[in-house]
Amino acid sequence: MHWYVDVIKNYAGFSGRARRQEFWMFYLLNLVVAIVVAILDAVLGLNSILSVIYTLAVLIPALAVTVRRLHDTDKSGWWIFISLIPLVGSIILIVFLASAGTPGPNSHGENPKQVLAHP
């Protein structure tokens, strides 16, 4: 759960790097919360009001962690826009996001895996 909370706390942090675990755990927990919110919407008959509010609330943190994840692979955050290319762009972005980070420091900062291993 701390992966989700850490990303929310650093909601507008577009600089630095994010490990694969941080990124994928955030998206997994985000999916679970979104499903629970959608169920609540349906049960309460709110016509997706809660879902829209939740989506808007996590939009910037989700973009920020995605950009930081791209930074970990030593790519610019602007690569996020490759997903606008139908079908192929999303596949390429997923490959980038699932790739291992650059070992050691890169142009976006220290390796977060090494920083956590050696406090």
Rank of each mutant, 00 (worst) to 15 (best):
W3M: 07
V7L: 07
K9T: 07
Y11S: 09
G13P: 00
G13R: 15
F14S: 05
R17G: 07
A18G: 06
A18R: 04
A18N: 04
R19C: 02
R20L: 11
E22S: 11
E22R: 10
F23T: 00
F23G: 00
W24Q: 05
M25Y: 11
F26D: 00
Y27D: 01
L28Y: 10
L29T: 05
N30P: 01
L31I: 12
L31T: 13
L31A: 15
V32E: 08
I35Q: 06
V36Q: 04
A38D: 08
L40P: 03
L40W: 10
D41N: 13
A42D: 10
A42Y: 11
A42W: 10
V43M: 12
V43H: 01
V43D: 00
G45N: 08
L46N: 02
L46M: 12
S48M: 13
I49L: 15
L50R: 00
V52G: 11
V52A: 14
V52W: 13
I53F: 14
I53Q: 11
Y54Q: 07
T55D: 08
A57R: 07
L59A: 14
L59W: 08
L59H: 02
I60C: 11
I60G: 09
P61S: 06
A62H: 11
V65E: 03
T66P: 06
V67I: 15
V67E: 00
R68W: 03
L70M: 06
L70E: 00
H71W: 05
H71M: 09
H71V: 01
D72P: 04
T73I: 13
T73G: 05
D74S: 15
D74Q: 07
K75T: 00
W78P: 02
W78R: 08
W79D: 01
I82N: 02
S83H: 04
I85N: 03
I85T: 07
P86K: 09
P86R: 09
L93A: 10
I94N: 05
I94S: 08
F96Q: 03
F96G: 03
L97G: 02
A98Q: 08
A100D: 14
G101F: 05
P103I: 01
P103D: 06
G104H: 09
G104A: 10
N106C: 12
S107Y: 05
S107I: 13
S107Q: 15
H108M: 12
H108F: 15
H108T: 01
E110T: 10
P112F: 07
P112W: 04
K113W: 06
K113L: 15
Q114K: 13
V115E: 05
V115M: 06
L116S: 12
H118I: 02
P119W: 09
